[in-house]
Design a protein around this nucleic acid. Sequence first.
DNA 1: AAATTGATTCAT
DNA 2: TGAATCAATTTT
Length: 187
Amino acid sequence: MREFFDFLRQPPLLAAPSLLGCILVHGEARVRLVEVEAYGGSEDLGSHAARGVTPRNQVMFGPAGVSYVYLNYGMYWLMNVVCHTEGQPGAILLRAAEPLAGFGDDSHPQLLAGPGRLGRALGLGRPHYGIDLLDPNSLLRLEPGEPCGEVLATPRIGLAAGKGDELPWRFIDRSRERFASRRPAKG
DNA sequence: AAATTGATTCAT
DNA sequence: TGAATCAATTTT
């Protein structure tokens, strides 16, 4: 089962699209990943790991398949899946998902459309930092899903000019685009 | 377009 | 010890 996620040991650019269609489980909640972004190391100025290891980003330098959860803008817990090999930082930001089970009547297409919404709806927080997502016994874990179809690659959201804002490192499962976060402010 | 919100980080 | 930063959302 763990072998299924061997693709996470690749660089983030290769690992990220393979995560689309996989299932994220937290207790009773089950969601299918439909939108992710790849973040690299020192070569990626938009990455938390661009300036070396810190207490916050240290798990990005560790083994693949571990959760990297952090607080953004003082209110949103954002979740990443660590990828790449040990010592080579890499992470995949989970930006949107399709609710499958565990949300009762709150389940609607936009419930998990955006990394902040996803973290909030799943009840993520500091305790979820550094969890082995490939361990079937983990409360928070990944499970294989159906491979998704056509993948849409677009620029990442929220990065300043010159920090990799033009790189098409955001990947969306086109067949489930209605669950993805809305496009960057423009129209 | 602006307010919200607080941990992390970098500079004193 | 303090100011600037920030992978976002909601409300105007």
